[in-house]
Amino acid sequence: MAVERHSQSELASPLNRKRLVERVNGLQALFERVCLIVEKDRIKPGDTARPFQRTRYYDTTLAALVRSGLKLLWSNGPEDSAALLVELTRLEQRKSHGISVPLEVKSGHREQALQMYLSMPSVNYVHALNLCHNFRTIGQLINSSIEVLQTGGCMSRSRAEEVYRFLRYSCDSFLMNTSK
C-alpha cells in the first residue's frame, strides 16, 4: 500500500494536475493499493477561517481519482492524517502485508542485487527487500516459478506474473543478442 497526502487547495489547483497524474500513475504501477489523504488547508496565524470553496474542477479531480482506483481518505489536519496512517499500518499488519524483513541490506552483493531488483518494472522497494532476503542469488530468482516469486517477493499473483514475464523476456533477449 502507498499513501500520499495532499491539501484540498493542491487538488483544486489546475497547475498541479500533471504532477498529480504522474505521481498517481507511478504509485499505481508499484503498489497494489493507493490511498490519498485529502487534508483540509491549514489556517495561518492571523488569518480568518474561511470555508473551502469547492469547484467543478475540484469535484471532477476527486471523481477521476476514485475512478482510477484510489481510495480517498479525509483529514482535518496533520494529527488526523497521522491517526489515519496508524490505522492503515495496523490494517496492513492484520492482512499480513507488513514489512517482515530487515529494512537494510548489509553486504555489497545484496546491495547490488537490491539495485537490480529495483530496476525491474512493477517492483517497489519493499518487494525488492523481500526478494533480496528470500532468494540467495539472482539466478535462484530467475529460475523461480510464479508461485515462488509471489511468496518470496510478498507480492500479488499478477505482479509476480509481470516479474516472471520480465525475467523470461529480458534474459532470453539478452542471451539471443550475445550468442551471435
Rank of each mutant, 00 (worst) to 15 (best):
V163Q: 07
N177D: 13
V21N: 12
R110S: 09
S179H: 09
P45G: 06
E104T: 12
G152F: 01
W74C: 03
Y117E: 01
G108T: 12
V123P: 04
L65N: 05
E32N: 12
T60C: 01
R157I: 00
G46N: 00
I138N: 09
G77F: 10
S122G: 01
V163P: 02
C132S: 08
L118S: 03
C171S: 11
L103E: 00
G77T: 10
L20W: 13
R94M: 04
S100H: 11
Q112E: 09
V24M: 08
L84G: 07
C35W: 14
L91S: 14
I43K: 04
G139W: 12
G98P: 06
Y164F: 15
T48S: 11
S107K: 06
R165V: 01
E87T: 12
L62H: 08
F52C: 02
L175P: 00
S145L: 11
V101A: 04
I146Q: 05
R54Q: 15
D80W: 06
L27M: 15
V24G: 04
L91P: 01
L103K: 05
G108Y: 13
G26M: 03
M176W: 07
H6T: 05
T61R: 07
H109K: 15
L70K: 07
H97C: 06
L129Q: 03
S9L: 00
V86M: 09
E10T: 11
L11G: 09
R94T: 06
M1E: 08
K44Q: 14
K180T: 10
M176Q: 06
H97G: 09
A83C: 08
E104Y: 11
E22N: 13
L91R: 14
E161S: 07
L30K: 15
E10P: 00
I43S: 02
T178M: 11
G153F: 03
S179Q: 12
N16D: 12
V66E: 15
I99S: 03
V123F: 05
E32R: 15
T137Y: 05
Q28S: 09
P78T: 10
S156H: 13
Q53R: 15
H97M: 03
D80V: 09
C35Q: 10
C154P: 03
S9N: 12
